[in-house]
Design a protein around this nucleic acid. Structure first.
Ligand SMILES: [Zn+2]
Length: 264
DNA sequence: AGTCGCCCCTGGCCGC
DNA sequence: TGCGGCCAGGGGCGAC
């Protein structure tokens, strides 16, 4: 579910709900997800901010920072009744509860270390919406790479935040065939692709991301960008530009749709 | 080193 | 209706 626009939407919602609230108790409902939670008790204290890095949320409390990844099905909500797959509850001084729920348990929750680091953050590539990330930077990162360009822009060491939806949408908008060997994109193509990635991510953020089946904002709302998909999950349907039937294949194990006429 | 396949896990949907 | 197979927004790991 959550790529950069969805995580950014959750970040903004959570910050509005949690900023200046005081965490009085952290209650795990299991020992961990794909990794152990570890000792989360140092999170108790006032929430200063909620940040995002790549697809990770960082909840800054006074003495510690909680790192949270939504995996495919994770969500945060201000808790009402308990639900199946609730894994972590932050009890607040005002009586509210912030609850992390994740049916597939591909997510992550852990504290940053004293230096503000965590192994999963090491080695992450540039933020796609950073003005310093441009076509020239992408071209350097792709030099000599023979893997498909779509796999490369989904590789979080090349650029962060782009997943299976926005990779397909950005490649369509920049007229690049997803399976093209990444190292063979010229500078003009890299510029077009970077511009398309920035545009599609910003558009998606502006409408609260995409809701496929279960993605919800921290406040319970849904995204709207799914109504603007031009290729994602549209295999066999007509291209919105030329009318050709969109193709569907797998690239690096992930379903990919593209237009055989518009994308080269 | 780079690339690929598999695996983690639950649930929804489709065809029989 | 029930059940098996397939698929899903991510990412880490081992094997070539
Ligand atoms: Zn087309």
């Amino acid at each position: 579910m959550p790529e950069l626009p969805e995580v950014e939407t959750v970040r903004a919602g959570l910050e509005g709900l949690l900023k200046d609230a005081v965490i009085v108790r952290v209650e795990p409902h299991r020992s961990g997800l794909r990794r152990p939670f570890g000792d989360l008790s140092a999170l108790s204290g006032p929430v200063r901010a909620v940040r995002r890095r790549a697809k990770y949320l960082l909840i800054d409390a006074a003495k510690a920072t909680l790192l949270s990844h939504l995996g495919m099905t994770g969500s945060w909500r201000i808790g009402d009744a308990p639900r199946a797959h609730d894994h972590l509850t932050l009890h607040l001084a005002d009586g509210r509860r912030a609850v992390f729920n994740d049916p597939r348990r591909f997510g992550l929750a852990a504290l940053l270390d004293a230096a503000g680091h965590h192994p999963v953050l090491a080695g992450l590539g540039p933020e796609p919406l950073d003005p310093a990330w441009d076509g020239a930077a992408l071209r350097v990162a792709l030099r000599g790479r023979k893997a498909a360009i779509k796999a490369m822009i989904m590789d979080q060491r090349i650029v962060v935040g782009v997943g299976n939806i926005y990779a397909q949408e950005a490649l369509f908008r920049s007229s690049i065939r997803p399976q093209r060997p990444a190292g063979r994109l010229d500078l003009a193509a890299c510029h077009r692709l970077v511009a398309a990635i920035k545009t599609v991510l910003n558009e998606a953020i502006s409408v609260g991301g995409s809701t496929i089946s279960d993605f919800v904002h921290a406040g319970g709302g849904t995204g709207l960008f799914q109504h603007r998909f031009q290729v994602y999950d549209r295999g066999g349907q007509p291209c919105v530009i030329c009318g050709a039937a969109l193709r569907r294949t797998a690239i690096a194990g992930r379903t990919t749709c593209w237009c055989p006429r518009c994308q080269r």
